[in-house]
């Protein structure tokens, strides 16, 4: 069942169309990747979901109901452009933001105490936000986003600005939230940063949705039956079912070859041919990355750039 469905959303600004008949379905309890380059229309779509702006055409349903201000407190939003009141104390600020989301001051304070212990930042409570480092502010902002325990969490470019340690901390939190039943939308132009976490994705390009579905299915759909082989020895002529795409001679008789298998054969057939000739070190299916899929679906070409390493 979809927690959120956006249907035929169109949004126009004075000079351009930000969204052109975009529909997405976000299943409950999933992590949904909203992917696309900068300026594709991701933020416009998010602003419609968070009711910051209204669509010119189309409708949004939240848990089956037409989206309304009553849903605001069930949504948490971490915008790409982050910010806090600089001259306000951390604790007070978080209480304030939580109260705006409909929590009482007492509830907010209790929940906040738990978070402060969890992140080990108890001594920040009475500090002014401007005295915190950028990374610390990001943590505070994250708490502000999830404190009211939203059913839908929208994270716009979530990992920019975090150092690797904190990025991992946040990643763990997100997975935890998902396990607790929270539905999460990731919006990013850096597709590689989230693709392994997403259950579903939608690709947005030039105001239009060009692809969406379960990540695994899309991957399967876009696989090219190409395998990358590394080993020692020399490669003889291959039968016609196998097409050698690329062959690199590495040092000391090592080779790296990329081979496409036609539909009549299987990877095992190929291995049987290769084993007598070569000492195999690795044999990997070249699975296209989201980035590759994106480029292929935009340009229609089949070139793969960097293979994403998944061992078969």
């Amino acid at each position: 069942m979809s927690l959120l469905s956006a249907r035929h959303i169109t949004k126009r600004y004075a000079n351009h169309t930000a969204l052109n008949d975009v529909s997405i379905e976000i299943p409950k309890g999933s992590i949904f990747g909203l992917l696309g380059p900068n300026g594709a229309g991701k933020t416009s779509l998010i602003r419609i979901i968070t009711q910051i702006t209204a669509p010119d055409k189309g409708e949004v349903l939240f848990a089956g109901e037409k989206l309304s201000p009553a849903h605001i407190k069930r949504i948490g939003y971490l915008p790409e452009e982050r910010g806090l009141y600089k001259k306000m104390k951390v604790g007070e600020q978080l209480q304030y933001l939580a109260q705006l989301k409909g929590m009482t001051k007492r509830e907010a304070t209790d929940k906040l105490k738990q978070w402060f212990i969890k992140f080990d930042i108890k001594e920040w409570w009475n500090k002014n936000v401007e005295d915190l480092s950028k990374g610390m502010q990001q943590k505070v902002q994250f708490i502000a986003t999830v404190l009211h325990e939203p059913e839908l969490l929208i994270l716009d470019e979530p990992f920019t600005g975090f150092d690797p340690v904190n990025a991992n901390l946040i990643k763990d939190e997100i997975i935890q939230l998902k396990q607790n039943g929270c539905t999460i939308i990731f919006s990013t132009h850096r597709m590689e940063s989230v693709e392994e976490m997403c259950d579903y994705i939608a690709l947005i390009h030039q105001s239009q949705k060009i692809l969406d579905g379960a990540t695994k299915q899309i991957r399967r759909q876009y696989r090219t039956n190409t395998y990358v082989l590394e080993g020692e020895g020399s490669l003889g002529t291959l039968p016609s079912e196998f097409q050698l795409l690329d062959l690199q001679q590495l040092e000391e008789n090592h080779i790296k070859a990329s081979i496409k298998i036609s539909n009549e054969a299987s990877p095992n057939d190929l291995l049987q041919i290769l084993i007598p000739q070569i000492q195999i070190h690795s044999f990997i299916e070249n699975i296209p990355s989201m980035n590759d899929i994106f480029i292929r679906s935009v340009t229609g070409t089949g070139t793969t750039i960097e293979p994403s390493a998944i061992t078969v």
Binding site: I52, P79, G83, L84, Y85, K86, L97, L100, Q141
Partner: peptide
């Protein structure tokens, strides 16, 4: 202007009108 330059405004208007 402060809210705008601090970028808190987008956080705020996702909660309030």
């Amino acid at each position: 202007l402060e809210e705008k330059t601090n970028r808190i405004v987008e956080v705020m208007i996702s909660s309030v009108k």
